[in-house]
Amino acid sequence: MEHLVDIVLLGLLMITGFAIVRMRSLLAAAMLTSIYSLLSASLFVVLDAVDVALTEAAIGAGISTILLLATVALTTDEEKAPRHTPLLPLVVVIATGAALIYGTLDMPHYGDPAAPIHQYVAPTYLHDTPGVIGVPNVVTSVLASYRGYDTLGEVTVIFTAGVGVMVLLGYRLRRCNITGPGIRNLIVLRVIAKLFFPLILLFALYVLLHGDYGPGGGFQAGVVFATGFILYALAFGLGNAQRLIPRKLLRIMVAVGMLIYAAVGIESMLLGGKFLEYRVLADDPVTGQRLGIMLIELGVGIAVASVVLIIYYAFVSRHCQAPEDM
């Protein structure tokens, strides 16, 4: 039964993929990409990766699509036919695919509990987490505690991307007062956005603070939080959104998020542990671990939410600045 759902979802993914190849309209391709992402999020749920599914649904199907649509709006919607015949790419793709499929023949079977990947560190993580870290969600404990260095690295990547987009798309741009085309008059959208804005924000905080117990954590919460503000900006105009959360504040918040993370690491060094060794943070090692995880999830959440909003502001305000530039 589980296999059946799996196979159906993979089949739908394949159909969507081929449709994207054939689609000439970039707008439609962007929407299909969103569907592709949502389908893979459903597949992740079937494959027991609930945390990953939440992240994919929020980021892949949500924010990435918004950015793609913004880019299509800033550039062009139609794709010209390629000049060359796709013969060479086709040969390359088929050859690569065949080589990879040949490579999979040596892989352990799907779902095999004896596969090497399940023998090395994972059993330790699963066994030790309740006693040492004290949180039920093993993904959170690995993400924030066992592999805290990695996660610090990822947050740095996000930070760098935010800076990069700011540099590319206008760091100096003045406040811009556009409203989404015509949305100002649409009372249905405005009233519903008003109703849902506090709910989305509360849900984001719920996801942030319940990452210990179930799917959730800083990354997902940050994105959901930013989505609330994007909805606000769509319904009430970018100008109002920037009055609510100014760019300057966002720039500071990105740095604050990173700093919270790094400061927890340094604090644990000052208290006599190693970098990011949370158990020294409190008298009881387990309490220390939980405190450390909570703090760094908070830092991650702040950083991710700010970067997503910075990127969104940058893309959308490019739209209203463009006529003056040209």
Partner: peptide
């Protein structure tokens, strides 16, 4: 865990 962070990096 690896993929969760990779998704966020893919956004970046």
């Amino acid at each position: 865990v690896l993929i969760l962070t990779a998704i966020v990096v893919s956004l970046a």
